[in-house]
Amino acid sequence: MEKVFGRSKGLSGTPFSFCPGCTHGIIMRLIAEVLEELDIIEETIGVSPVGCSGFCQDFFTCDFVSGAHGRAQAIGNGIKRALPDKIVFTYQGDGDIAGIGTQHAIHTAARGEKITSIMVNNALYGMTGGQMAPTTLKGMKTTTTPYGREVEVYGYPIDLPKIIAALDGAVYVASVSVDTPKNVLQTKKAIKKAFRVQQAGLGFALVSVLSTCPTNWGLSPQESLKWLRENMMPFYAMGELKATEEVKNL
């Protein structure tokens, strides 16, 4: 029988340790497939953050550096500046990249650092048990906003990709989702493009992926996907937010 699907060579075989229904596993699998398809597993150094995504170094077969909360991009910049011919990517949650690490997100993009960042946005801090994140939606309940996020107190959620897209050094910015098979395929395309941008040395590339957190949202995996579609997608700008001419011609 013909084998139509198998584990990517980019994945180590260590079983994913995520909660049922969490989409981290899908996103990591897509990255691994892209690394394999571009034949850059041996050229790539990943940088992991702190949070649920902080375990990702265990799941890939490429080299990995794990650092402090929010610092993945700064660390990635250091690696890339030392090894400009290698491929460097960061894998970060929304709290990591849009909260404690915002300064690095802005300046990595502004400097046009030739790295690829994957942001996984589930609208809260998952690993610590579901606290408010910069991305938490208006009225959304978390353990630190038990009555819902009140804008009078906490202001508004940040749509980071939109901000990054406004910076000249960012040449490719996409906001995607893995809630349906079709969107999974689209996400893979976006991730692939973000790596190809780096291979071509064009500038900074960011792919934001909307993700679910059934455990902390208090919903079933199925309900979570529905909630993501009905609440997150209308708020966050979706699609290819920025692609320079050079990127389009890739």
Partner: peptide, 26 residues
């Protein structure tokens, strides 16, 4: 060599962390 003025001191030391991980003198 390369000199990079970082966004802040935290960025600078984190960049050192990344570069040192590659075995470069930083």
């Amino acid at each position: 060599g390369t000199v990079l003025q970082a966004e802040d001191e935290i960025g600078a030391i984190s960049m050192c962390y990344g570069a040192a991980a590659t075995g470069a003198r930083v």
